[in-house]
Amino acid sequence: MKKVINAPEDVVPDALRGLAAAHPGLRVDAEGRFAVRGDAPVRGKVALVSGGGSGHEPLHTGFVGPGMLDAACPGEVFTSPVPDQILAATLAVNGGTGVLHLVKNYTGDVLNFQLAAELAADEGVAVESVLIDDDVAVEDSTHTAGRRGTGATVFAEKIAGALAEERAGLPAVAAVAREVNERSRSFGVALSAATVPATGRPGFDLPDDQVELGVGIHGEPGRERAPLAPAAELVDRALTAIEADLPLSGDLLVMVNGMGGTPLAELYVAFGEVARRLRGRATIARSLVGNYVTSLDMTGFSITVCRLTPELLRLWDAPVETPALRWGR
């Protein structure tokens, strides 16, 4: 294993200290394991809190800032943050009008965010939770009951964050996050496994001439293994799975996401194939190409598609200023 780390057990706090040094506009608690926007709590604004295992950067800490998240809680690598950590972040950003928890559908995340919400309620803080479960690859997996939460998390954080900046109430902010989730679908393809620092070896064996179709962001198995194929065929397989669950028409928000180890040139190849496949059937109104929901050093890609409405498009275009996503300011 070759990693740019000091020690496997120090990866998360060391990364948080580096985040703080690189982005002084954030307030980062490396010991408490959470990051909040520099002006938190913002009075009169619904606060958004999300989190999950480390190793998926820039999700979630890279999306903290005006127009998106108020706080993010990174757990250990591929491990849920603990309730006390989530509670501390929730209390730190509560502006008096409630807090929205955006929770990817993984068993540990669901249970720990639920307990943190109950503890926050005991402190007099109103909390609503929205579950993100956009991955069409499998119904149940190693870490979930039901579909996994993946790329739609970025869409929900951005769009709900924009509405919160407009001082909408907690029910409205939660409702738009649920709408984004309902209108979004994802599918991932792995060419190689991620290497977790604590183990020092790939999380699963994948022969050089094989790909994992429908892989999860922690390396969970997908639908099947198949022979390595050209980008056009891999994209067609992914979009076919998505379209079987969500008709692709109208204005779309499309993200071709890298898993952490895929060159950007290859992601643009994949996006070009997405555009080819959708030409004449739907309009790619907005797009993201790059690393947004990674899996350490896994090679491969995922596709996330959201069917936009005029209001969702307006909120997507609203200003945002975070380490990993920024425009309009």
Rank of each mutant, 00 (worst) to 15 (best):
K3M: 15
D10G: 07
L16Q: 02
G25T: 08
G32M: 07
R33S: 12
R37H: 11
G38L: 07
A47L: 05
G53S: 09
P58T: 08
M68F: 12
G75R: 00
G75C: 08
G75P: 00
S80V: 07
P81Y: 05
D84C: 10
T90R: 01
T90D: 05
V93K: 00
N112V: 07
E118Q: 15
G124R: 03
A126R: 14
V127W: 04
D134I: 05
D135V: 05
H143Y: 14
T144D: 04
T150I: 15
A152C: 11
V154C: 05
A156I: 01
K158C: 01
K158N: 06
A160Y: 03
G161L: 06
R167M: 13
P171L: 11
A172L: 10
E179S: 14
V180K: 01
N181I: 09
S184D: 08
A193Y: 05
P197Q: 08
R201G: 15
P202A: 11
P202M: 10
D205I: 13
V215D: 02
I217V: 14
E220L: 10
P221W: 09
G222L: 02
L228C: 03
L228I: 13
L234G: 02
D236S: 14
D236L: 12
R237V: 12
T240A: 15
D245S: 15
G261C: 10
G261Y: 03
G261H: 07
P263L: 00
P263Q: 06
L264H: 14
E266C: 04
E266V: 12
E273D: 14
G280R: 08
T283Q: 13
A285Q: 08
M298G: 03
M298F: 02
G300Q: 01
S302K: 04
T304Q: 02
R307S: 14
L312Y: 06
L313P: 00
A318T: 08
P319R: 08
R326F: 13
